[in-house]
Write a protein that binds this DNA or RNA. Structure first.
Length: 868
RNA sequence: GCCCGGGUGGCGGAACUGGUAGACGCAAGGGACUUAAAAUCCCUCAGCUCAUAGUGGCUGUACGAGUUCAAUUCUCGUCCUGGGCACCA
């Protein structure tokens, strides 16, 4: 055989063919069942990396599979194109962010095309284009008018290096998620989206997303953080009966044990209470010291719980006791009301604090088996028990008193039931240039004025200087900033210079894909109703809370304004694992590239300094760890099909994938095996029509092969359709191919007149089953097999039920649960018959050794277990 | 600290509802073809063990118990590991 597998020639040929024939163009067709498949769109950083390829390969298998199943598949791709790297690159290379971004998009688009993903490129857009962000601005205006977008002054996480505000979600253990700089606190006027209005709904609907991994919905639930409890007012001991501190607690059952109060250092009362007292100086010092160390700071985690007395008292509404008011470093202004009622007997943190400052401890919950003594207690008692020292509630189980105490609070006017969320409103202001401008004008006379809808989009000015001055570049862009007030026409007005968080763009891009070129509004409703919601969404688990929660929120906002009819954007979600590779580290030179490692007899040496090299952990590929694989190199060496195959074969999608050079070679070998099995048999099968009849008319090896082919169809279909376990789908086809090679060698079966037909069916089926995974080579082989219309829209093979049954099954014969013998039998034979065979088996009898049989368990077609 | 995962050969991973552990691939070793190499093909491949070399015996899915005729699978405890949240009142 002269024909050699040449991946590059085959792949370029079919990519051209698909493009020419518009094979993947998706159009609304109400007669067909739609399937909207989406992978998280990339940030155009410049290069596609292997993690993208894995993500998109997974998606492409599903898209191509569904197409073959007759679905009208929409599989779009685009660019999450706003963001900081463009600005950073602009500063470094003295280019404009737009230029940098668009040239990156060019490069990455051609890379993606070279992998042969079945995208409908007609729907492509970049979120940085005015045609896209215009609609985002419109939505902002609608939200502003509905009071869902509002401005408030607040402390924000500030990254000094990136010169920007970060959302809480973008702060990872005290550091900027992008540049790892330690985050500090800054007070600024910010725009917020009121996501908390939907906290309850977003939480409840987590349970209505059966197609999502429970892990992700659990993370969202924790993030939203709903707590049910009560708000309680503690009046100050100032005889006015007007000033009070309000707290939120989940333990109103312990209110009789509240002996002191802790306020967050930022709490407005802290300064007021201590003013003019001898405590003023101490309080001020403490507050200043504590605020400096913000809560996300690394130091903050380690610091001891401490506080200072403000000099004033408040009154416990139930006991009328005086409670000293402290300000404490563990009280958080952002949670609840910034004030904590402290119950030292039943909260460990309060207990430690009370011990430290010698504060009163009152036991109000008595456990069943022991008697708590505040003087001898060594830790707080946080379990259930019976209330004591609690007036009219004495003797009631604490959990039962929750409701009653909340009711009494309400009756007395000193509180109420209350639900509190950890989730806070979404701060979207960014002091950056490369983002969507917030369409707001500040007028000296009229105040905050929204840009009229007819004036949209508010364009990002192109003639700006980046990195020359402190702060946001838009602030120094006079042409942009200076404007007329749309209401009073006064010249004394300026534009908002902050831009929107880039998570805003990615919160609705999946909606825009349905009508990407629609000019009249944000969304063309009929298209949207047809395509949405996304049937399958695929992306990294790192977006479990950020992007996915915002998207759920935005979908509700769009729904509220009547733009869309659905509330949840993604019916099914698959979160794929990272791509990892081993690292090499030299004590002196740090991380090394694989080519910098010299293998020697015993251990590896560093090519730079000659020092010992340690093979480090398998870690996520990253430039800094020097363990990155370049997809383009891989594709030019082995081809796109091999690259795809390996990404899918090495691990199931949800798990991390460990890169292996030899594994890639194995994948390449397999494609070659497939390629060869077609060509070596082509003369035999070329003119044969595939056998599709019942297996009973066949015999011997041919029958076995025919049945194996149907079993393979069943396995692959199940693995793709129900489990996304492409690794086992591939191994099933590998088994079939292995079997085909055995037939090829077997001269006896070569005389069977049914051979060409069955062989054709088997080979053709293998090609069809592989086609979503390695589409190019399959298109080529499909053509070789004589099909002129392309494999992309060929029908997915169906299996025959009568071909799944086995002619013979192997039965394990066990004695006391241990396998002592195996025998072949007809399938589905009577239990009694199986027992009989097992009991006549020599090896089994040897182990029974004439002992009495207690019982015999028979599992049909599987085993016989004799218990003695 | 709290909440989720995960732990299976030299390696990546199979085993779908408790029913024959190790599919498929990689690596390794041996062999065939070849002047040679590459490519390809075939065989072996969890560990220990045996006067019987066999469809032999024993052990084995992180560790220890338990439920069961039967446990990688279910329950409890321990260890390790990955992730999320982290003074949340």
């Amino acid at each position: 055989m002269d024909i050699k597998y040449n991946p590059e020639a085959i792949e370029l040929k079919w990519q051209k063919y698909w493009e020419k024939n518009k094979t993947f163009k998706a159009e609304k067709d109400t007669n067909k069942k739609k399937y909207y498949l989406l992978e998280m769109f990339p940030y155009p950083s410049g290069k596609i990396h292997i993690g993208h390829i894995r993500n998109y390969a997974i998606g492409d298998v599903v898209a191509r599979y569904k197409r073959m199943r007759g679905y009208n598949v929409m599989h779009p791709m685009g660019w999450d194109a706003f963001g900081m790297p463009a600005e950073n690159a602009a500063i470094e290379n003295n280019t404009h962010p737009a230029k940098w971004t668009y040239s990156n998009i060019e490069a990455m688009r051609s890379q993606l095309k070279r992998v042969g993903f079945s995208y409908d490129w007609n729907r492509e857009f970049a979120t940085c284009s005015p045609a896209y962000y215009k609609w985002e601005q419109l939505l902002f205006l609608k939200m502003f008018k509905a009071k869902m977008a509002y401005r408030k002054e607040s402390y924000v996480n500030w990254c000094q290096k990136c010169q920007t505000v970060l959302a809480n979600e973008q702060v990872e253990s005290g550091a900027c998620w992008r540049c790892k700089e330690i985050v500090s606190q800054k007070k600024l006027n910010q725009w917020f989206f009121s996501i908390t209005d939907y906290a309850d709904e977003l939480l409840d609907c987590c349970d209505k997303l059966p197609g999502w991994p429970p892990k992700v919905t659990l993370m969202q639930k924790n993030w939203i953080g709903k707590s049910i409890g009560a708000s309680i007012k503690f009046f100050l001991e100032d005889n006015t009966k007007q000033n009070y501190i309000e707290v939120f607690t989940t333990r109103q059952d312990t209110v009789f044990g509240a002996t002191f109060m802790c306020l967050a250092p930022e709490h407005p009362l802290v300064e007021k209470l201590s003013q003019g007292t001898e405590r003023q100086k101490a309080v001020k010092e403490f507050v200043e010291k504590t605020i400096k160390l913000n809560r996300t700071d690394k130091e903050f985690e380690k610091q001891e719980k401490e506080g200072v007395f403000t000099g004033k008292y408040c009154i416990n509404p139930f006991t009328q006791k005086k409670m000293p008011i402290y300000t404490a470093n563990f009280a958080l202004m952002e949670y609840g009301t910034g004030a904590v009622m402290s119950v030292p007997a039943h909260d460990q943190r309060d207990f430690d604090f009370a011990k430290k400052y010698n504060l009163e401890i009152i036991v109000v919950i008595q456990p069943q088996d022991e008697k708590l003594n505040p003087l001898t207690m060594t830790q707080a008692y946080t379990d259930e028990g019976i209330l004591i020292n609690s007036g009219e509630f004495n003797g009631i189980k604490n959990t039962d008193a929750m409701e009653a105490i909340a009711d009494k609070l309400k009756k007395d006017g000193s509180g109420d039931k209350k639900v509190n969320f950890r989730l806070r409103d979404w701060g979207i202001s960014r002091q950056r240039y490369w983002g969507a401008p917030i369409p707001i004008i500040y007028c000296k006379k009229c105040g905050i004025v929204p840009v009229p809808e007819k004036d949209l989009p508010v364009l990002l000015p192109e003639d700006i200087e980046i990195g020359k001055k402190e702060g946001s570049p838009l602030q120094s862009a006079a042409n942009f900033k200076k404007t007329k007030c749309p209401q009073c026409k006064s010249e004394d007005a300026c534009r908002e210079t902050d831009t929107m968080d880039t998570f805003v763009e990615s919160s609705w891009y999946f909606e825009r894909y349905c009508s990407p070129n629609y000019q009249k509004s944000i969304i063309e409703k009929e298209e949207n109703n047809y395509w949405m919601p996304v049937d399958q969404y695929i992306g990294g688990v790192e977006h479990a809370v950020l992007h996915l929660l915002y998207s759920r929120y935005f979908t509700r906002v769009l729904n509220k304004f009547g733009f869309v009819n659905h509330k949840e954007p993604f019916t099914n979600l698959l979160t794929q694992g990272m791509v990892c590779k081993e690292t090499h580290k030299c004590a002196k030179c740090g991380f090394l590239f694989p080519e910098q490692v010299k293998p020697e007899k015993q251990n590896k040496k560093c090519a730079i300094c000659g020092g010992e090299v340690k093979t480090g952990r398998v870690e996520k590929m990253s430039k800094s760890k020097k363990n990155v694989i370049e997809p383009s190199e891989l594709i030019s060496e082995y081809g796109a099909d091999t690259t795809r195959l390996f990404c899918l074969f090495a691990a199931p999608p949800e798990r991390d994938l460990e890169w292996s050079k030899t594994g890639v070679e194995g994948s390449f070998r397999f494609i070659n095996r497939v390629f060869r099995i077609v060509y070596t048999n082509i003369n035999t099968i070329a003119s044969a029509s595939p056998y599709t009849d019942t297996p009973d008319k066949l015999s011997g090896e041919i029958k076995k092969l025919y049945k194996k082919t149907h079993v393979t169809i069943a396995r692959v279909t199940n693995d793709i359709e129900n489990r996304f376990h492409f690794n086992t789908a591939i191994s099933a086809v590998m088994e079939l191919i292995n079997e085909l090679y055995l037939i090829d060698d077997n001269t006896n079966t070569k005389k069977d007149p049914n051979l060409p037909k069955v062989l054709k069916f088997a080979i053709q089926t293998a090609i069809l089953l592989l086609s979503p995974i390695v589409p190019h080579v399959c298109e080529e082989l499909w053509l070789v097999l004589g099909h002129k219309n392309g494999i992309t829209n060929a029908q997915w093979p169906e299996y025959r039920k009568d071909a799944l049954t086995k002619d013979q099954v192997e039965i394990a014969a066990q004695v006391n649960g241990k396998i002592r013998s195996k025998f072949l039998s007809e399938p589905d034979i009577e239990d009694e018959k199986l027992k009989e065979i097992a009991l006549s088996d020599e090896r089994v009898l040897k182990f029974i050794n004439n002992k009495p049989i207690k019982k015999i368990i028979v599992v049909k077609n599987k085993l016989v277990n004799i218990v003695i």
